[in-house]
Design a protein around this nucleic acid. Sequence first.
DNA 1: TGCTGTGAATAGTTTCACAGCA
DNA 2: TGCTGTGAAACTATTCACAGCA
Lengths: 208, 208
Amino acid sequence: MKQTKIPAVTINRLSFYARYLFLLNLKDVNVVSSTQLARACGVNSAQIRKDLAYFGQFGVRGIGYYVKDLLAELQRILGLNKKWRLGLVGVGNLGAALLRHTHIHHPGYTFVNAFDHDPKRIGVQVGNLIVDPVDEMEETVKTAGIQIGVIATRNKMAQQSVDRFIKGGVRGILSFATVQLQIPPDVHIEHVDFILKLDALCYRLTAN
Amino acid sequence: MKQTKIPAVTINRLSFYARYLFLLNLKDVNVVSSTQLARACGVNSAQIRKDLAYFGQFGVRGIGYYVKDLLAELQRILGLNKKWRLGLVGVGNLGAALLRHTHIHHPGYTFVNAFDHDPKRIGVQVGNLIVDPVDEMEETVKTAGIQIGVIATRNKMAQQSVDRFIKGGVRGILSFATVQLQIPPDVHIEHVDFILKLDALCYRLTAN
DNA sequence: TGCTGTGAATAGTTTCACAGCA
DNA sequence: TGCTGTGAAACTATTCACAGCA
């Protein structure tokens, strides 16, 4: 499938396009041109055509793209047509917020287990889940078929949590921790780091 | 100060370097080379030297960088040596988690006000703050001297909240919403979008 | 006519490689 | 000697511009 190495920015944009196409589809819009899509997503129209060209030809010359079809193609390309089973470790403020988060536009993601190392939190219900102890992680991750591990622990516990997910067979990690994490080459990791974003704002506000 | 346009990726890396230097400083390490720093941050050493070169010369040939000095320089460059007053709108699961978040390594950021549009939430204490109604935003943002506005509302309310912050004089926005937001050219915005990151993981896990 | 798809041109970023200096 | 600082080279990404087709 992957003819060549697709840049991460392209994947993020595809995800963004898919979101907008989803909205257009809700509004019963049938056709959209790369120029319209570009305006809505704040990018150049050639960019959109190039991004799509990595994966094939999805448009009709003189017309544009059929919204339903392109949306379906993008969902297939990104893997959003499947169900994804998520595990969470660290049921603090952030972790609990994630569990209670309603994924309206993304019914494909479900948290199936939550873990914590703090005995006071174990057995407590958060959202739809009962918090499990971290020492059951490896086993539970295997039996529950968890595919993506979400790290919402303190930095100190992050590496240990990653290791446990990986031992359980997880190949994708979403980390909210602000430390570098060691992972084997066949595992993918994405970082969500809003302090970094705040720092960028400070810089822009300071540097005029 | 800003001789040329500094790329956003460079700013993010500087922030990352600063974090690591902060840790080194805690451990009383005095000197670090670009090679050591590079290994710790997972980048090329020339990259670090180039990133720093945008702002000046901070090293000593044959030695490396003095940790304390470089940290201070980076904090000055990024504006992290100042105190920043943040306002939050949307005290749902995520917003409440942010208010309760302890910024151990970043004492420069403080939430000074929280707003919500839901009457049931107004007057309630979350973290150290009492939730205020959104229709007081413009006024409160001015009097409280809020410099950065954080958007943690539902997508529907996001644009309205941005507008209110900007009317109150805010020039920097951190948005957790997943919609495009309209802002005037003198306002800076950063997006935190973990669904986009999850989508990227799905793609990588799907595309093998 | 009015769009897509794409080669070519441009712009931006990273890495190499080494001069220059403590 | 062993590092930084930096021009040049290599690489990557974006945008232009237009051929090709419904």
